[in-house]
Design a protein around this nucleic acid. Structure first.
Lengths: 193, 193
DNA sequence: CCAGGCATGTAAACTGTTACATGATTGT
DNA sequence: ACAATCATGTAACAGTTTACATGCCTGG
C-alpha cells in the first residue's frame, strides 16, 4: 500500500527490476531501508495487474532473466495524484506511538520500579538512542558527500531529529526519576494495587 | 506481544476484566489509545494459558458475567523482568520511519513536483501536525488537572514533542522548497528519468 | 569449499483492524 | 424508536516478517 508508490516513483525515474529496486533502496539511504522479498515481488505484481507498470523479460546467460518494469501513462497519473498528498482529513489520525515504543510502555509503570533501577533502564535506553542518532548522522554525511538529492537527505534528517527528540525526552524522564530518588530516599516502592 | 505487558501491569495494579481494561486505557490517556476487542480478548486468553493471570467468573443479573483476571506470582515475575528493559542490544533496531509516514515517502520524490504545489502539500501537512499537537496538549492538560501519575503524563508529552519535531522538520522542508522556487523561477520540472 | 552476490518467487507465521454476533439495560 | 453502555467473544481481512526454494557465478 505504501511501498507501491515508492516503487512507482523509482521506476518512473528509471525502469528496473525487483533486485535492482531492492539494491537501490538499501544503498541510497542505508542498509536498513531494504525491503524484503515477500513484500517487494507481490507489490510489483499488484502494480502490474493494476496496469500501472508493464513487464519486459530480459534473458541473461547463466542468471535468471530480469523482469524489467516501466511505468504506464496510467501509473504516472496515479503517482502524480499521490504526490500532491491526500485530500485534507483523508488519512485517519493515529496516536500509536505508545504501542510502538517499548520504553513508553515501561514508562507507564515506572513508578513500580525502584528509582535506581528505573534510572539504569532509562540510561540504557538513552545510550541506544544516542547510538542510533550517530548511525544516521553518518548516513547523512555519506549522502552529503555523494551529492544525493537534498530532499532525500531530509528523510534521514527526519530520523536524526527523531532520535534527538527521544534523547531529550529520556533526559527529562531521568530528571524526574532523580527527583523521585531524592524525595523517596531509601524507601523503594513495590508493585501493588 | 506488546499489549500483553500493559495489560499485565494494569491487572497488577487492580484486578479487572476485558471491558474495564479497555475503558481504563481509553480514559487514562485518550480515546484513541483504546484497544480493539479482536486484540484484547485473545491477549487475555494467551496470558491465561501462559499461567500469568487467572480467571474468576463473576455472574451479574441481566448482563454477561464478568471474567475478572488477577496476576499470578509467575505473571508478576515476568512483568518485573520486562519492566527493567531488555538486555542491551536485544531489541532489533528499526529505521522504519520512512515507511510509516506518507509525507516522508512523498518527500523522496518532491523534486518531481512544481515547487508551488510541493509547498501547498507541505503546508497542509504542517497544519495537520499542528492540530495533532494541540489535541495532545489538551489531553496532557486534562491529565495534569486530574492528578494522573506524572510518568503517564510523560507518555503524552512524548507525543507532543513528536508532533513539535515534525512541525520543525516540515518548516525546514518549506524553507528548502522556497529556496528551490527562487532558483528555478517559473521553470517547472516534470517527472522523468 | 564456502560465502556472498545475482535473480526470481512462494509459504507459513505473526500482528493488527474491522466487522459481526448476541442480548439486556438505560437514556433521549 | 434509537442509540449508547455493558460484556463477551469470533471471523474475515489486511499487512508484514521470516524463512524457504532454486540455481549459477565469482572471489577468497
Amino acid at each position: 500500500v505504501a511501498l507501491e508508490y515508492t516503487l512507482l516513483g523509482m521506476l518512473l525515474e528509471k525502469p528496473g527490476y525487483g533486485y535492482s529496486l531492492k539494491k537501490k533502496l538499501a544503498e541510497q539511504f542505508s542498509r536498513e531501508f531494504g525491503v524484503n522479498d515477500g513484500l517487494l515481488y507481490p507489490a510489483l505484481g499488484r502494480l502490474e495487474s493494476r496496469g500501472w507498470i508493464r513487464k519486459r523479460v530480459v534473458p541473461q546467460a547463466g542468471k535468471p532473466a530480469r523482469h524489467v518494469y516501466s511505468v504506464t501513462a496510467d501509473g504516472k497519473r496515479a503517482f502524480e495524484r499521490w504526490l500532491e498528498g491526500p485530500p485534507p482529513g483523508e488519512e485517519p489520525v493515529r496516536y500509536d506511538f505508545y504501542w510502538r515504543h517499548g520504553m513508553l510502555q515501561r514508562c507507564a509503570f515506572l513508578r513500580h520500579l525502584e528509582p535506581a533501577r528505573a534510572r539504569a533502564a532509562v540510561e540504557r535506553e538513552l545510550e541506544e538512542a544516542t547510538r542510533r542518532g550517530g548511525d544516521l548522522e553518518r548516513v547523512v554525511e555519506r549522502m552529503r558527500a555523494g551529492g544525493v538529492d537534498p530532499y532525500r537527505r531530509m528523510i534521514v534528517e527526519y530520523g536524526i531529529r527523531d532520535q534527538r527528540m527521544q534523547c531529550e525526552w529520556l533526559e527529562e524522564l531521568l530528571a524526574r526519576i532523580e527527583e523521585a530518588e531524592r524525595v523517596v530516599g531509601a524507601r523503594p516502592r513495590a508493585v501493588s494495587g
